[in-house]
Amino acid sequence: MATAPSPSVGITGWLASQVANLGDTAIAAVAGIGDVSVFAFRTLGWIFARRQRRDVLIPCFYQIGVMSLPVVALTGLFIGMVLAVQSYGQFKALGLETRLGSVINLSLVRELGPVLAATMLAGRVGSAMAAELGTMRVTEQIDALESIGANPIYYLVVPRFLGCLILIPSLTVMADFMGVLGGYFYSHVLLGIDYHHYWNNSRQYVDVFDFLTGVFKSLFFGGAIALVSCHHGFHCDKGAEGVGRAATNAFVHSFVMILVLDLFLGIWLNNVHDFFRPEGPRRLL
């Protein structure tokens, strides 16, 4: 935090210390990015270097995929309904309430489905991974792995990375599906919007590309969550406080990564869409 210069130090000294602090922060940030990058490359290297054992992969996949399904489905369902609640008034004022399906479903498959599925995964799985690996670091279990001649990245990071990467598309599809269902339920059953027009408008505006965009983005989100969370766990400070901080930072940094990736992937995918499909949208449903 910047503080006022004291008379004994003088304004020049104070300015110098502020510049030094800024420099330290910049160096730490660059070193951090470099550290995560090296960690990511080592993880990618181990994916191809040696085949994973099934008895290590299956429990990991179960924890990441199966155990996350209920919370992701519930989130998708409610977000679909909330979108209907929030949009209905605006659309009704314009006499366009039958277009509600298009806005709900488009928002879901392009943005909210993948982002919320990833956020739930970061909260449920990312923090747990950081806490588990952090505890292993603090209790010397990672050192024990190395002392046995086993590679901790191969045993601890690669299964979690593969689990997030492979299973997040399924979780995204589940969030999309439950969101579409929730939006339809609220719009048709509770608001009384005609189902034929609801689906017809959805078909008109939601493209296969929109759906695939969301699923494609989720792959990057899953990979980022696993790498960021495992990195925090691996570099956890000592003690319960260190483990707690690693778990919190894993979620916060994963969430920031999801948002940043979402923006840049969104821009890039829009350009790809315009390049390959200048003729306009294709029907999904």
Binding site: M136, T139, E140, Q141, A144, E146
Partner: peptide, 21 residues
């Protein structure tokens, strides 16, 4: 090479460091 070398060593950790899972 380091991983292979470590097969010649046994390390007994202070808190045993057994794998919890």
């Amino acid at each position: 090479q380091l991983a292979h070398l470590r097969t010649h060593y046994g390390f007994v950790f202070q808190g045993a460091a057994l794998f919890d899972s």
